[in-house]
Design a protein around this nucleic acid. Sequence first.
DNA 1: TATCGACGCCAC
DNA 2: AAACGTGGCGTCGATA
Length: 394
Amino acid sequence: MWARGTVSPQTRQTAPRRFTLALGAPAPVRTSKLTVLVARFTIGSTQQLGHVLYERLGLKGGRKGKSGAYSTDVTELERLAGEGVECAKLVLDWRQLTKLKNTYTDALQAQINPETGRVHTSFSLAAAQTGRLASTDPNLQNIPIRTEIGRKIRDAFVAEPGHVLMSADYSQIELRLAAHMADVPALKDAFRAKADIHNLTAIELFGSEDRENRNKAKTINFAILYGISSWGLAGRLGVSREEGQAIIDRYFERFPGIRNYIAQTLTFARENGFTRTLFGRKTHFPNIDSRQQNLRQGAERAAINAPIQGTSADLIKRAMARMDGALESAGLEGVRMLLQVHDELVFEVPDGREEQAADVIRKVLADAAEPAIKLDVPLDVEVGWGSHWGAAHR
DNA sequence: TATCGACGCCAC
DNA sequence: AAACGTGGCGTCGATA
């Protein structure tokens, strides 16, 4: 992957790899300049909004941040909206639209290189502590996908005529790595059987896999990877801290390998000051012994996560390093690797070569651990393609 | 005009 | 107090 700023122009042997941003497409979001009228107060910033909501309108339950200002983040505004405060919903809608317009629609079009007519990102190789890449100027690793309107931004990224955009992403890679690294037979069996892992967790924890319980299980599965706390889980699930702790206890009862992994990882990090990925790469934690509780606990959570997130980063880098050679060996020189988004690679593929390219790409990603590591779980890769990026996720 | 911290929010 | 991990970036308000 070429990186502007780290590869000098004269060393380039091919044109930079790039996305086209469809200039002809209508801007998917239109908003007027920020000025939201709440009752008879004009709001121009979050600080002013918080002040109006809690001091002048007299609403209850405000939460304050480190600067002492009332928080007006999405959890607070959704709470207020649920309590019948209509302007909270208006502000949330306005926030979503201005976020998409300012951060994506306008900024990305301003980033189009006049020489190439494309948007070029830069990848930092040593920005993230865990070994992930980081994308800047512009960041193409945080293009919206979650909401319907946000997804329209992805649809503006289109393939060159005669080509498609192909996306290949690892399915549940961090949970798979957790199952392997923590040696959890139930989870490893589930992945080998291609079971739905969140349903399995829901059954184990709640005895049922209805949608509500599956969603709770999904939250818990992610929380595990991030170094769980009863407060954090309670906040996410909207339950009391005691209930959050009870759920964690039950999880560790059902999957004792996870509890052992966490304990062993923390012991190692305290003794050595670092953790290692499966491939041996270190992440250091200078605050692991801090006398400041918030710093120490933050380091502990990061140390629990780093071997998993870092191994995932190692795997996709190994795949990227092998990808061009594999494509070339298959006679697929026309396929270009454009972008990495942590567990996803995006390619531009000539029309008619889709199935062939998908086979090569899937195999390189699925075999990325070999021959250094024999994983106990398969690495599943989901491949899709279409005329635009949004259509490549199926 | 440039930079910074705080806040908020997009992604994986 | 802070409260599940990793990032980048937009706006605001303060400051140089």
